[in-house]
Structure formats: C-alpha cells, structure tokens
Design a protein around this nucleic acid. Structure first.
Length: 427
RNA sequence: GCGGAUAUAGCUUAGCUGGUUAAAGCGCCAGAUUGUGGCUCUGGAGACCGUGGGUUCGAGUCCCACUAUUCGCCCCA
C-alpha cells in the first residue's frame, strides 16, 4: 500500500465545506480592504529564497524542499509566501501601479520538518502583502485585516503581540548590546544559542530553553535601542491600533524567523492551539525588494496558517454546517424510466436546480433511503404512471407530504417552496 | 536532527495472568410480500491483529528490530 507522504494531509469531501467557508470569508475580508488576489508558482529558483528569506534562517538552512530540475537548475518548493510575491512585483513592473499595491494570496507552503500538532510539511496560508507605503498606518491596516478576518469567522481567545526589531540603522547597535550582555553569561546559554550568538544574535531572544529564558529577563530590549525613526514608527503604530480599537500587547521577545523583517513584527496566538500556537505572523520588510532588485520599495504583510485556523475552529466546536444539499432527487422506478429521468435531470440542471438522480440502479425504497442520507429536500418519483400522466410524484422529505407536479412546473415548485432560499443566499 | 507515547475492520474501541473459527458500536450493502426515507428488527460484506524476527507445544497478547502515526524540542503558520 502506498501511503500519503509524512506531514501531508488529504482534504476529504466531507470537510470541503470548511475550507470553502474559510476561503470565502478570507476573500470577503480582502474585498473590504480593496486587496486583490495574486497567484504565483508553487516553486521558484532557489536563489530567490536564499536572497529574500536569508541564508542564516532555519527555513533556508535546513527546511527547504530543494531539487534540481532536468535542466540542472536548482528549484525550491515555496517555504513561505512573501518572496514569490516580491519577485512577481519586481518582474512585472508592478512598481508602476498606483501605490500602495495591496495583494492577497492562498498558497501551499512546504517545509521539511518533524510534524506535530499544528505543523505539517505542506500547509496552506492566506497571506497579504502591501507594497509602497512606509507609513505605520499600513502596518496598522494589515493587522486590522487579520483582526477583521478572525472576527468574521467568530474566533475568540486570540492574543495579538507586537514588537519592533529596528532597521538597518539601529539594529547593529542593538545586536552589539545584546552580544555584550550574553557573552558575559554564555555558560548559561543552550548550545544552539551559543551558536546563534555569532551568526544571528536576535534569534536568541525567542529561545524557550529555561536557562536562556531566565538569562533573557535581564537582556537589553530591542525597543530601548531603536533609532529615532523606528521609535516614532512604533509609537505611531500603537497610537493607530488604539484609535481603531485593536487590543495588543507589546512583547519585546518576538522575533520572526525570517531575515527580511524590519521595524514592526507581530503575531496572533491562540489559546486553543497546542505548542504551535501562532496562527498568524507578519511584519514590515522595508529592505526586501532592495535586496532582490536594488531599488528600494517598502512593504509589509502577514501569513496566516489555514490548518491551524481549522484546528481552532474545531476545538471551539464552532460548527460550520454543510448546507450544499441537493434540492431535488429524481427517483426512477425501474430501469425503463432511467432515460426519461436522465433527460429530466439534465434539463432541471440547466435551469439551475441542484438535482441528483440514481446511478446505482437501486429499488425505490433504497433510493428514498439514499435521498434521505444526502439530505435532498424533495424527491420526484418518476415511474410509468407518472410518465404517462405527465407529472411527477413529489415528496417533501422534511414534512413527509406528497403532491403531483407536472414535469414542466417542477422547477417552479422546488424553487417556490424553498422557504430557506433567502437564508442560504446570506450564508 | 533529538526525546516520549501509540499501532486490532472505513471510523471508535474490546480482547482478562499467552490457549481453539479475533468481538462490539457506528458506517456501508441487502431484506422485513406487491412503487415510498428517518425509528425498529434481521442478515451480509469488510481485519494477512503495522512489518520482520525471536521466546513457546501454542503469540493479537511476551521480547527485539524496523516502519508508520502522534505529542513535544529546535523552528515556524
């Protein structure tokens, strides 16, 4: 038996409606903010991620699905969404669009890691990217997009943490201060952190080893070493978040694992998730486009994990009902009526009625049983009597009543009696 | 890459200190007379008990290895 690859999941028909629900709410949210969709390839030249995400990161260093194609080019399955969008922005001259340029995407993300609760080797993200604005109002709006989306889904128990990790101008001096502090106590650091100290000192900050955590309590904070510009940016972001009523908590320990972030970083965590509690993470990346292209264009965005979102919805026992039931089931009585029923079914579908009919050559009794299971609202029984009389015997499956309806008026009857149609449309 | 836990039908599980044809519920299929669902009843299909080796007269049960799953570490959504 060939099994599914480690860390991947099938999306089965019985849970399709949950994904559709999430995707629809995401698209509606994006529309509210005037954000348009972009789609980029599943794989890119490896070089893009080396330059964009940064080769000191764990993602690039040990988690990428990299392979040589038949032409000998090194390709990599997207380990995150932003680099691809940045590449598309540059390559398609989107700099000439009116700024800011706001885009959203759904994408598969691939990382070679050990799976655990809320972590897969292929997962899916809803993400947004804003290009062209260096104003903290853009950071604020990005956070508002995520917040609005969560509210639309009816999710609670979320916490928003924000931080500023500075920019090219002030980060080096912070790194120095941090290194100096940590060097004095290096014997208390875990081996991984001792290594990080040289390569990427910022990363020590979010280590959860007890020893490191304790040491970090007295460590210098990024927010105390920011340059004037970064301080102002962070202050204004907080002011704007306050103005639109989004609650947040400043957490100086938040450092994202992607090198392109500057100034603002943030994450939403959920109490409903296990150890991997971050459901949405993002921030500002003012140097990313320049690193890839040479020209400087500021940007900011977030990535939001859809599997984790689904875990939250499940653990909240928030029922997402599947209302995509057939409006009508056409039940042929005997094989002789099949051709007639196929024709009837086909013409009803052309008129926009959701119809199902028999493909299992079941008895009438079994067909009614089946119609009940698939929750068809009506059943049209079509036997030789009905064909002769020119009208179907229509059974209302929730009430139990039966009525003769001429074939020509079936659609009218089904649609007209569908009292719930109005409610369905609002869903 | 490193730890811990688990592995019996499609799903959830039972299987007592090793002992004959491995159970149950749900689900699936079919019937309970003549063309009618939900409830009930009856029957059926479906398991090389994760894989390989060992101990034993005898292994689903004990031992070892491997594999897979799962939770956690690192890191991330």
């Amino acid at each position: 038996m060939i099994s599914i690859p480690k860390g991947t999941k099938d999306m089965l028909p019985s849970e399709a409606h949950k994904w559709h629900f999430i995707e629809e709410r995401a698209r509606k949210t994006a529309k509210l903010f005037n954000i348009r969709e972009i789609r980029t390839p599943t794989f890119e030249h490896t070089e893009l991620f080396l330059r964009g995400v940064g080769d000191t990161t764990d993602i690039v260093g040990k988690e990428m699905y990299t392979f040589a194609d038949k032409g000998g080019r090194s390709m990599t399955l997207k380990p995150e969404g932003t680099a691809s969008v940045a590449r598309a922005f540059i390559e398609n001259g989107l700099i000439n669009e009116p700024m800011p340029l706001k885009m959203y995407y759904f994408t598969s993300v691939f990382r070679y890691e050990r799976p655990q609760a809320g972590r897969l080797r292929e997962h899916h993200q809803f993400g947004i990217e804003y290009f062209g604005s260096k104003s903290p109002s853009a950071d604020c709006e990005i956070i508002a997009v995520a917040d609005t989306f969560f509210k639309k889904l009816g999710i609670d128990g979320l916490s928003l943490f924000i931080n500023s990790i500075g920019c090219r101008a002030c980060r080096p001096s912070y790194n120095e201060a941090l290194k100096e502090y940590l060097w004095g106590n290096a014997q208390n650091l875990c081996p991984a952190c001792r290594d990080r100290l040289e390569r990427n000192p910022l990363r020590v900050l979010d280590c959860k080893e007890p020893g490191c955590s304790k040491l970090l309590e007295g460590a210098p904070k990024t927010t105390n070493h920011l340059c004037v510009e970064c301080v102002e940016h962070f202050d204004r972001l907080r002011e704007y978040l306050g103005a639109i009523g989004i609650e947040y908590c400043v957490n100086p320990r938040i450092v994202r694992g992607l090198d392109y972030y500057t100034k603002t970083v943030f994450e939403f965590t959920s109490s409903h998730l296990g150890a991997q509690s971050t459901v949405c993470g993002g921030g500002r990346y003012d140097d990313l486009i320049e690193q890839l292209w040479g020209k400087s264009v500021p940007g900011a965005g977030f990535g939001l994990g859809l599997e984790r979102l689904l875990l939250i919805l499940d653990s909240m026992e928030r029922r997402i009902s599947d209302r995509n039931y057939p409006e009508l089931y056409v039940a042929p009585v005997g094989k002789d009526c099949l051709a007639f029923c196929l024709k009837l079914t086909q013409s009803l579908r052309q008129e926009g009625v959701k119809v199902e009919t028999d493909h299992m050559e079941r008895s009438l009794k079994a067909q009614l049983k089946y119609a009940d299971k698939i929750r068809a609202r009506f059943v049209a029984i079509v036997g030789s009597y009905e064909i002769e009389a020119g009208e179907a015997t229509v059974r209302d499956m929730s009430r139990g009543g039966e009525q003769k309806v001429s074939f020509a008026k079936l659609k009218e009857y089904i649609k007209g009696t569908g009292l719930r149609r109005h409610i369905w449309r609002n869903f």
